[in-house]
Computed example of a mutant assay.
Amino acid sequence: MPDGREEDAPPRRRRTVALAALVVAIAILLGLGVWQVERRAWKLDLIARTDARLAAAPVAAPGPADWAGIGKADEYTRVTATGHFLSDRETPVLAVTVHGSGAWILTPLVTPEFTVLVNRGFVPPDRRDPATRTPPAGEVTVTGLLRVSEPGGGFLRSNDPGAGRWYSRDVAAIAAAQGLGEVAPYFIDADATPNPGGWPIGGLTVVTFRNAHLSYALTWFGLAAGLAVLAWRARRG
């Protein structure tokens, strides 16, 4: 006659395996929740540092001696540079703004020490042709935000220098296409100082950081709590 304990062994093993799987799942969900809490702290620090740079007085645009160290940590620093524009070598780059779709106008600014691309601002399609705008003349001082290069192109679209189609502000590629030689590895988003004739419109940089890490953390912790309840009930059963 079979031993009742032997007949009960397979269900016990299945229950043990299920409980072990729940424990592993709970541990993973708790780890994901902690990771999101850490990401939230990092994002809040990033926002605070960016806000500080935006509120600070402008500094001189970094010259060649500082180019090797330029990176994401420098983005949105307020900078200023003085020189003259090479308006005949401007490059329109696809843009979508509060004013609709059109183009950013990137123009080389030649300073006494180096050349830097300046995003002078937005123009609608009917102002894309330089002949429809008043070119800047003489020496100018530009104040704006330091931005890192955007290599490659836009979403699902690659820059096509040969056809003059630009979907991102790729500093190196634009400089090569315009025959500018060595330029600063960043570009400057000009502020809202009016341009001659009103075009382009500067000062349209959008500085936002998505911060949904708290909701993600609560979701992972909530799922972990739900599984913990299931595990407790299964253990009692």
Rank of each mutant, 00 (worst) to 15 (best):
L117M: 12
A21C: 13
D126Y: 00
T80A: 14
P92T: 15
R5T: 07
P135K: 00
D126G: 00
P196N: 10
R12Q: 14
A137T: 15
G179S: 08
I174L: 08
V17S: 08
A137E: 15
G63Q: 08
T111F: 05
R53M: 14
P108G: 06
G33Q: 09
G71E: 01
T115P: 05
R169F: 07
R127N: 10
G121P: 01
A224V: 07
D74I: 02
T82Q: 12
A57E: 15
V93P: 09
E75R: 12
L32F: 15
E90G: 12
G31K: 06
W42K: 12
T132I: 04
G144W: 05
T143G: 10
D170L: 05
A192S: 15
P112A: 12
Q36S: 04
L32S: 02
L29K: 03
L86Q: 14
M1R: 00
F221V: 13
V23R: 11
V24N: 04
D66N: 02
D170C: 05
T111G: 03
R14C: 07
V96E: 15
V229R: 09
G138A: 08
V118N: 09
Y167P: 05
P64S: 10
L109Y: 02
I105A: 08
E38H: 06
F187E: 06
G102F: 01
A81P: 10
R15G: 05
R89C: 05
V23D: 11
